[in-house]
């Protein structure tokens, strides 16, 4: 009894199949990226479903922006880590020497 609306997860599947033609026309190298979009949308399906949007497509778009944000954070962290790493090894590189004691700056 009850349940007039599809669940948000079902709505996502609906949107995905609605956009199948776009996927079909995409060059192969982008198709996996396209699929990943919806996967990332599903990653936040719990929260987006709880928000209970009247239009699930908006929740999907917000979820994708969110996934993007998460990925940016991860990349920034990685970049920062590498930069720190580079800073440490930089003097040796400049000197063109390869020694084992790269941590002496600490």
């Amino acid at each position: 009894m009850g349940r007039t609306n599809p669940t948000y997860r079902d709505a996502l599947r609906g949107l995905e199949s609605e956009w199948k033609p776009m996927r079909r026309a995409l060059r192969r190298e982008y198709q996996a990226d396209f699929d990943r979009l919806f996967d990332r949308g599903r990653t936040f399906a719990d929260a987006a479903g709880y928000a209970n949007p009247t239009d699930p497509e908006r929740a999907l778009l917000l979820s994708l922006a969110l996934a993007h944000e998460v990925e940016l954070r991860r990349l920034r962290a990685e970049l920062e880590e590498r930069e720190q790493c580079n800073d440490r090894t930089a003097p040796e590189e400049r000197d063109g020497r390869t020694t084992a004691g790269g941590d002496e700056r600490e």
């Binding site: 007039t4 609306n5 599903r42 399906a45 719990d46 479903g49 209970n52």
Partner: peptide, 13 residues
């Protein structure tokens, strides 16, 4: 009200 009420339990992905 119907929109808010007519849904299921909460599931974490």
């Amino acid at each position: 009200t119907l929109h808010a009420a007519d849904r299921g339990g909460f599931t974490f992905e």
